[in-house]
Amino acid sequence: MKKFILDLHVVERQLLHREYVLLKLTNPDAALPEMCPGQFAELRVDASKTTFLRRPISINFVDYERNEVWFLIRMIGDGTRALGLLREGDTLNAVLPLGNSFTMSGAQFPKVSDDASLLLVGGGVGTAPLLFLGSELKKRGYKPVFLLGARTAGDLLELEEFSKIGELFTTTEDGSQGERGFVVHHSVLQSRKFSWIYSCGPKPMMQAVAAYAAAAGRIPCEVSLENKMACGVGACLCCVENTKEGHKCVCKEGPVFNTEDLLWQN
């Protein structure tokens, strides 16, 4: 997929909860390029004196009709804070789309006609790419099931958007919404049988989801990994994950990996 360097314009900024900001951006010059769920953008941070490198942020949603791309920003450091404090009308330089994407077809992939049951498990800001993924799956005739977890009810983001796309289950650590506890303890994992699992969130959560998938009859499980990146295009080899085939770049050969290829069990 061809990559672009674009000066995007902020058309909407929503403070979702405390440190979470949703940015909706448009390309004023042309139609946005085609992007796939799981891919990310390298966003240049201009308004922070302490930030030098771009910030890799996953694509939250693409609205081709409105020519909008959405990014969910968790303001956690100086760089992401500067991004989260952008205002409507500001310009944001983005390199996109980067990385591989979640599997949505192929010989191994369950068919709609086979009553496929696809589970999308997200934690915290890691729920971001699952919105785009769910909507693309829905377009293809699937009925995605979301299982989203967070610390508190307020940390569960974009629930209205998710519920428009598919069935939604939630957990919170404090019990303020959905079942109390972690996503891997949610009752839906026991009551339903899934044929494919996607996950994005904190690494311990994804590892627990991978362990569940393996134990529940080796359900194929894809995870989107996070990593500190410099180039974002596979040139600098900084953001490696150790896999069964050696070091792989999360930015180019990921961020989506099948958990069978990772060394998480060791």
Partner: peptide, 23 residues
């Protein structure tokens, strides 16, 4: 060469440190 283990990069003021290890 498999290179060095992760983490291999750290952002610093106006620059970055790398320890890729000639992968």
């Amino acid at each position: 060469r498999e290179g060095n283990p992760y983490p291999r990069m750290a952002e610093t003021p106006s620059g970055m440190l790398n320890a890729v290890g000639l992968q």
